[in-house]
Structure formats: C-alpha cells, structure tokens
C-alpha cells in the first residue's frame, strides 16, 4: 500500500502537469496567493484579530476608525473599522470565507448538474440530447444575474420568514443553476468524441451498463476541460455572489461576505470613509485574479496543442 502511494506521489511529481507548474512563475505565485486566501478564510476564527460576528465584542465608539497608518487610527484595527465598529481586516477574513464557501459550493453544484446532463446528452444522443441542449440554449439567453435574482425572489416569496437562514443555500442554488450550461456543452462535445472510441465500444461488448460506461469510462476522460472551467468558474461565482450581495439579495449583513462589505462601505464612500469599501474590494480582486491565473495556467498545461 505504501509502495503504491509512493508510486502515485512520484508519478504526480513527475507528471507533465507538475512539471509545467514548476516552470510557470505565474502559476506558482497565483497558487501561493490563493492558498493564503483559502488559509486565512478557513482559519479565520483563529487568525482574525477580532470576531466581527460576536456582538459582545462590538463597541460603537470604535466605529469608522481609519486604518492604523492614518491619524486617528488604532493599531488593534489595522485596516480600520466600519460603522458598527467591526474590524475591517477581520471582516475580510470572515467575508472571504463566506465568499469562498458560496463560490465553491455553487461551482460543485453547477459542475455536478452540468457534467451529468452533458454526459447524458452526449452519450445517449437523439431526443434526450436535443431536449437538454435546447433547454441550455434557452437558459443562455437569460443573463446569469437575472436567473439568480429570479430564484432568489421566488425563494423570498415562498419562505418569507426563513430567508436569512436559507440565504446561503439560495445563493448557491441561484449561482449554480445559472452556470451548468457551460459544463454541459463542453462535456457533451468531448463525450461524443469519446463514445465512438474503441475502448467504449469494447466496454459495450462486455455488457457493461450504459450508466457505468458513462461514469467509469467516459467521465474520467472528459474531466480535463471541466477542471479548467471549474477553476475559472469559482472566480466568476465569487463575483456573482459579490454582485448579488451588493444588490442586497445575498447573505445578510450580520454575516457579511465580501460583496456585502463592499455594499456597506459604499454608503460611506462619499463621506470620506473609503477604507470600508476599498479593502474588501482589493481582497476580492486579489482572490479572483489568483484563481483566474491558476485557471489560465491549467488550461494551457492541459492543452496538448500548446505543449
């Protein structure tokens, strides 16, 4: 067993992907930045100087303090505070955590839905394929943000009281549903290529069930491009989440995501308290940029024609 693990480790270190990673400074920097984002987000309760969600720690007399290097700043609030006296740095840590959670969950949801439907459409073909792809076409003609707003609106109407507690899942659902088409189209295309390959025909000869063929033969061979899309989609999903939260239909202000923070800060932009918006905004840009750079590298590394 240990031997197998060592083999696998050596294989992956030796693989073309790892080699390409070791020779791409962009990818390495992006990976480090992204890892730092994920690290601080995951470890927020331990690394953040304050707990912004703990009402007992809040003190309104600390509200709207500027960053520590500006006159009137307080070293215990390095990036200043917002109108309720919450430490901006800590809220960014906690906000990034929520943004990442929403982004990753939405992408997993999109990916699951899109990959399954794409596999089905590509492998079965015929009317199933036509139906799935027409639904995809129709959905593509709506802007993603509109679909998300629609779902959110419906959810608010159906569960009026419970909305705040369900906000997270409503966000995941609305962002996730609006993104599946891209996965489905990509997977469908590659599936139609793979299903005519002889290894799939051989599996059919052994009487393997079509669902098993899709899952065990076709799926592993169409996942490459899906990984690329998913990586870049995390960035898009985080931005969509921020937009929705900025529009006020995202997570509640008591547990703010980066988007919510930007919205809150927006009210103070013109009264001179720019730091409330700027720092969460910067955090968002850095995180999204790192993810996009990683995605770009992954696309190039997985594309045999560019190698």
């Amino acid at each position: 067993m240990a031997g197998r693990l060592a083999d696998a480790l050596r294989d992956s270190w030796d693989s073309d992907l790892a080699w390409s990673f070791r020779h791409s400074p962009y990818a390495m920097v992006a990976a480090i930045v992204f890892a730092a984002c994920v690290g601080t987000a995951v470890l927020a309760p331990w690394v953040a100087p304050h707990n912004p969600f703990d009402l007992a720690q809040l003190d309104l007399s600390n509200s709207l303090k500027p960053p520590m290097w500006i006159a009137g700043g307080d070293p215990s609030y390095p990036l200043g505070t917002d109108d309720q006296g919450r430490d901006i740095l800590s809220t960014i840590f906690f906000g990034a955590r929520i943004s990442l959670e929403v982004g990753i969950a939405a992408v997993l949801f999109s990916m699951g839905l899109g990959v399954a439907l794409g596999l089905l459409a590509g492998y079965v073909g015929g009317k199933t394929d036509a139906f799935i792809m027409r639904v995809a076409d129709v959905q593509l003609s709506f802007p993603a943000i509109l679909i998300a707003l629609l779902i959110d609106g419906v959810a608010r109407a159906v569960f009026p009281g419970a909305h705040d507690s369900m906000a997270f899942w409503v966000l995941v659902l609305s962002i996730g549903v609006s993104g599946w088409v891209q996965y489905a189209r990509t997977v469908r295309g590659s599936t139609m290529v793979e299903k005519n390959k002889e290894y799939v025909q051989a599996a059919r000869l052994f009487g393997i069930h079509p669902l098993a063929i899709m899952a065990r033969h076709v799926l592993p061979n169409v996942l490459g491009p899906v990984l690329v899309i998913a990586t870049i989609h995390i960035a898009t999903a985080i931005i969509t989440e921020a937009t929705l939260s900025f529009l006020g239909v995202g997570v509640p202000a008591t547990e703010p995501s980066l988007g919510t923070l930007i919205r809150i800060g927006n009210d103070f932009m013109f009264s001179g308290e720019w730091w409330v918006t700027l720092f969460p905004g910067l955090a968002l840009v850095i995180m999204v940029l790192a993810i996009n750079l990683l995605g770009d590298w992954l696309r190039d590394a997985l594309n045999p024609r560019l190698r």
Partner: peptide
C-alpha cells in the same frame, strides 16, 4: 438491444484496429 444472455455476449469478442483508442487511457 442490450438484453442478450450473458453466455452469448461472453462467447463473441472483438479486437479493434487502433491500439491507441481501444484501451481507456485512465
């Protein structure tokens, strides 16, 4: 049609042309 008896399926097999496409690379 996919509902052949296993015994029949087992007895008939095929070898394909393209040795690169006939084995699942993963």
């Amino acid at each position: 049609s996919g509902n052949a008896p296993r015994s029949l399926r087992r007895r008939l097999q095929m070898i394909f042309q393209d040795p690169y496409a006939s084995l699942n690379p993963r």
